[in-house]
C-alpha cells in the first residue's frame, strides 16, 4: 500500500522462552480501522505496546509516516496516540484538568485544546461532568475521558488496546461513533478487541495466534476464505444437538450459539440430509435448519482450528 501511515515489518518480541510476537508484518492506511483479533495470549497487547513504543521489540521495524519509531521516538510520538485497556487518568484531577494536562504535554496551544476538548466531550456526552474528579466517573465514562485525552492533540495514528473491555453497550456505541468520525478525518487506527461483533466493524482484520499473523483481510474477504459452509440449527437442546452432530462425516466443528448451534461442514447440500437423519435418530428436537453466512466468531473458530491442524 502506498499511502500507508503505519508500516510494521518483521516485528518480534521474546519473553524468556516464549515468543510472544513472531515476525509480525502489516500496514495501515489513513482513514482505516485495522483490527487485531485473537485469543488471550495471542500477542495483541505486546504488539500494541511495541507500536506505541513503550516496549522495545527484539527485532523488526515500526514506521509511522515514513519515520522509524525506534530510531526517532520523539518525532513520531507527536502524531501517535495510545490508549491501553485502562487509560492512565489522574483520579484526583477533574475531567478538564486531565485533558489539559495531556494537551500540555503535547504542547497543544490553549485555544486549540479548549475547542478540541469541547468537541470531544460533546461527542461522548460528557460536557456536564467537566468539573468532576476523574476518580468519581463510571468505568465507561473513564474510558471516554481517556479517549478524549488521547485525541486532544489530533493524532494521525490511534492505537487502541481493547478499549471497550468492561464498558457498557451504550458507551461502546458512542465510542464507535467517535471512531467512525475519526476515520472520516483520515486517522489511521489499530484496535485490538476481544469482542467479535466489534471486529466486524473494522475495515480490515488481522487474526493473531500465538504471536503469529494467521490471516489478514477485510471481514468479507476473511469470510470468503472460510472453507465449506455454515449450517444454523435451531434447537431447544443445543448440548444434545452438539453431541449428536460432533464426529459425523464432513462436520468440521460445532459452536453453540444463542438459538442452538452453528455447524461447520465441508458441503452443505450433501451433509444437510445426513445431519437431519442423525438428529432424528438421536431424538434431538430441532425447529429450523438452514445454511447461513458465517459470523466472525464462526470464522475465528474455524480458521484457528485449521491453523492448529496445520501446525
Amino acid at each position: 500500500m502506498t499511502d500507508a501511515v503505519v508500516e510494521v515489518e518483521g516485528l518480534s518480541k521474546r519473553f524468556g522462552a516464549i515468543l510472544a510476537v513472531d515476525g509480525l508484518g502489516f500496514s495501515v492506511g489513513a482513514g482505516e480501522i485495522f483490527g487485531l483479533v485473537g485469543p488471550d495470549g495471542a500477542g495483541k497487547t505486546t504488539t500494541m505496546r511495541m507500536l506505541a513504543s513503550v516496549m522495545r521489540p527484539d527485532e523488526g521495524h515500526v514506521v509511522v509516516d515514513g519515520i522509524d519509531v525506534l530510531a526517532h521516538p520523539e518525532q513520531t510520538k507527536r502524531h501517535v496516540s495510545y490508549m491501553p485497556q485502562r487509560f492512565g487518568l489522574y483520579d484526583d484531577l477533574t475531567v478538564d484538568e486531565n485533558i489539559r494536562f495531556y494537551a500540555d504535554l503535547f504542547e497543544v496551544p490553549a485555544e486549540l485544546w479548549r475547542q478540541r476538548a469541547e468537541t470531544l466531550l460533546a461527542a461522548s456526552d460528557m460536557t456536564r461532568f467537566r468539573t468532576r474528579l476523574a476518580g468519581q466517573l463510571s468505568g465507561g465514562m473513564k474510558q471516554k475521558l481517556g479517549l478524549s485525552c488521547a485525541l486532544v492533540h489530533t493524532p494521525r495514528v490511534l492505537l487502541l488496546d481493547e478499549p471497550t473491555t468492561g464498558v457498557d453497550p451504550l458507551s461502546r456505541r458512542e465510542f464507535w461513533q467517535i471512531l467512525y468520525g475519526l476515520r472520516a478525518e483520515g486517522v489511521a487506527m489499530v484496535i485490538s478487541t476481544a469482542y467479535l461483533d466489534e471486529a466486524e466493524r473494522c475495515d480490515r482484520l488481522a487474526l493473531l495466534h500465538r504471536g503469529r499473523l494467521m490471516y489478514c483481510d477485510t471481514p468479507a474477504g476473511l469470510k470468503a476464505r472460510m472453507p465449506g459452509a455454515m449450517l444454523e440449527i435451531a434447537s431447544p437442546e443445543p448440548r444434545r444437538l452438539r453431541d449428536a452432530v460432533q464426529g459425523l462425516p464432513g462436520v468440521e466443528g460445532v459452536l453453540l450459539v444463542g438459538i442452538g448451534a452453528h455447524v461447520h461442514v465441508d458441503d452443505a447440500a450433501a451433509r444437510l440430509p445426513q445431519i437431519a437423519q442423525a438428529l432424528a435418530a438421536a431424538g434431538v428436537e430441532t425447529t429450523r435448519m438452514e445454511t447461513v453466512a458465517p459470523t466472525i466468531e464462526d470464522l475465528f473458530v474455524a480458521l484457528l482450528e485449521r491453523g492448529e491442524k496445520a501446525s
Binding site: A52, G88, L89, D91, L105
Partner: peptide
C-alpha cells in the same frame, strides 16, 4: 495507576 506509561507515549 498506569499514568507513567501514558505519559511516556507523549513527547516528554
Amino acid at each position: 495507576v498506569g499514568t507513567l506509561e501514558q505519559i511516556m507515549v507523549t513527547p516528554i
